[in-house]
Amino acid sequence: MTQKPVSMEELSAYVDGELAPGQAARIARIAASDPETARRVAILRSLRAGVAAIGEETARVDVEAIRGRMVRRRNARWLGAATAAAAVLALGLGLAGWQSMTPASPERGAAAGGVVSGDVARMVAAHDAWVAGAAPPAAAPPPDRLSALIGATGLRLVRSGRLPLADGRAAGQTDYLGAHGCRLSLFRAEDAAPRPARERLVVEIEGDLRLASWSAGRDYHLVSRGMDVPRFATIASALMAATRREGGDEGEPLALLSGAHRPCLG
């Protein structure tokens, strides 16, 4: 009995594993008994292997090098955007000054896991403990004016606590949670700062850590991880303005904060 010849299309699909099991079995049977079909199958498999090797033999792309360039470019872009956003905000609010965002300063950078040191390191650790679910449970206090301002950015007050500081003072900690996983902690020293108030807002970026510090009668620190940098800087700038305008009109910072809705990274 003469077998129906196998077409090029069928053979091609056969070597690609694209035929239905019944069709593939038929071709396998034919190839087992017909040397010419077996030769054709072998040629197509070799041809496929030859084409598959083309890319790697002719050009290479260093993905790691591209990644390094992109990370550097992105960091530079964030730095510029955050600086611009916060500077515009500071100008709009008539603030005393704005210190551009920098990587964590050297005097604070060595200790506490290479990020920050002293009381600020305690605050970062307290924020991380809350994020990790390791902080002591505490009920959320009634919202105050700062909570209302932060709430305008989509972050909800969920917890408060008290953090002892190195010099015997303490700071109040309030933790905020966003709808998409953003987490932010605000630390307020309970007592007036023992030194002259810090004129400028300092925003520091170290990896995914975002840290902002300012003074308004007392010291304030804002901590987050992975938050969009312009958003973080906007929140920090608006909070500094609000804390320096006790009892004043908060329409301006509120309007600015209302636009600061961005998802967190990771």
């Binding site: 083309i54 890319g55 790697e56 002719t58 792309v61 993905v63």
Partner: peptide, 28 residues
């Protein structure tokens, strides 16, 4: 996937240098 992506780019462009640029732009 990048080695095979380069192969595809070479097939499209028929030029290894152009293929490298194309893959890099696609990654970005």
């Amino acid at each position: 996937v990048s080695p095979r992506l380069v192969g595809y780019a070479v097939a499209l462009t028929h030029d290894p240098d152009l293929a490298g640029d194309l893959v890099q732009d696609a990654i970005v």
